[in-house]
Design a protein around this nucleic acid. Structure first.
Lengths: 98, 98
DNA sequence: AGAACTGGTTTGCATTGCAAACTAGTCGGC
DNA sequence: GCCGACTAGTTTGCAATGCAAACCAGTTCT
C-alpha cells in the first residue's frame, strides 16, 4: 500500500463523517458555542445535530455542557484537547493524501 | 453557513467513503488496473472491494470489464470521465475546506 | 477423481445517518 | 389558573451502509 492510500485508510472515521466534520471544524475555530448556533451554521436538523454531538462526546472529542440562559435551556459545546489533536491529524492526513 | 462548511457539506458522499476514495485515487493515477491489484494495494477484503466497485459502477464513476487472462477470469477497472471530474471536484472541495 | 486454489459475488448482520415524533419546560392570552 | 403555541433539545424507527463470512464457478495439482 502506498503512502497516499495509507493516509486515506487511517483517517479518523468519527471525524470523517461530513456532519461531524462541520461541527468539529466550527468548534476548532471558536472555543465555545451553543447548540442553536451550530444548528444554524450547519443547516442540519435538530435530531441529526443532537446525535452527531452525542457521538463526538462519546468519542471524547467534544464537551457538552447543559446550562441555562435565563430560564431557557442552553447547550454549550467545546472541542476537547483530544478532539483538537484528532482534527489536526485528520487535516494532516488529508494533506498527505492530496 | 460559511464557505468552509459549505464545501464540506457538498462533498460527494460516494467518493467520500475511504474505501472508495482509495479505489478512485488509485484509478485516477493509472488508467486501468485489475481487481487483484486493487485488492493488494487497498488491503481490503474481496467482498468489501467488490461491493465498493459495484457502487462506483452504479454511480457511473468506474467501468468494470470482465475478461480473461488465459483461462483465469480477470476484472479490469477504469475511471470513467464522470468519475474523474467528480474526483477532481472532491479534491477542490477539500482544498476549499482546509 | 477430488482436494486445493483463484477470482470474485452474494448473504447476513451490526452500525450508521436521518428525520419524524416526542419531551420538558416557558411564555402569552384570556 | 389554564390552554395553546413556542423553544430547546432527545428519542425512536427505519432505510441505507459497510463489513466479513460464506458461497460459487472454474482451474490446477496430484
Amino acid at each position: 500500500m502506498n503512502a497516499q492510500l495509507r493516509a486515506i485508510s487511517e483517517l479518523d472515521r468519527v471525524i470523517h463523517e461530513p456532519g461531524r466534520l462541520m461541527i468539529v471544524a466550527l468548534l476548532a475555530g471558536v472555543k465555545e458555542c451553543d447548540f442553536l448556533f451550530l444548528l444554524r451554521e450547519t443547516e442540519m436538523n435538530k435530531g441529526n445535530l443532537s446525535s452527531h454531538l452525542a457521538r463526538l462526546e462519546e468519542a471524547g472529542y467534544v464537551e457538552i455542557e447543559k446550562t441555562y440562559r435565563g430560564k431557557v435551556p442552553q447547550t454549550l459545546l467545546r472541542l476537547k484537547p483530544a478532539g483538537r489533536t484528532t482534527f489536526d491529524n485528520y487535516r494532516k492526513g488529508l494533506m498527505a493524501a492530496f
